[in-house]
Amino acid sequence: MSVSESIWSLLLNEFVNYVVSSVSEPSEPTKEENNEDFINDPEDQKKITKAKLSNAGYQIGQKLADRYTKDRSRFREQVDIIRFLCKDFWTLLFGKNVDNLKTNHRGMWIIRDENFRPLRNLSFPFDGKNLKKFDLNENQIQIVQRFLYFPCGLIRGALSALGIDADVDVHCSLIPACEFTVISKESN
């Protein structure tokens, strides 16, 4: 059975909004033990936002990767895992294959998607200068990051389920393109 991609995308955006606002201004006291954790520092707020969204993505990435590979034999080589991620898994979640993959053959991969679906509808107010330039300033990069923590988690979770324990980071300076950096924890 299928649902529309839009309802998932809208749901995720609401989740991001919820996490961001609940981290920066918890309203009434929620649970007793959380009171002393009221976070004032924006850097800390960012870390917690990132952790919450990334971990949620991680859980889901793991489960999905498990489900979609249970009929296949275990992947033997890392290159097969990465290929599955960049083609099958990416298509499942984001509707297309990745556009570019680079590796140093020692546990680091850089995955580039020129038209990343979660970022396709995202757009900042026009500053009046160059209509064709979609480059982001520092502040805008920070805002876009919030929408990328969850996908990072998805990738990290999927890789973990398939046998690669890695850190996943993402950079976006020109929507809707973005670049994921995957560094296997075993690499040096």
């Binding site: 299928s2 649902v3 991609e5 889901i60 489960k63 499942l92």
Partner: peptide, 11 residues
Amino acid sequence: DKINFEIFTLT
């Protein structure tokens, strides 16, 4: 565009 319902359900 459609996606598999499991993705939505798990999310």
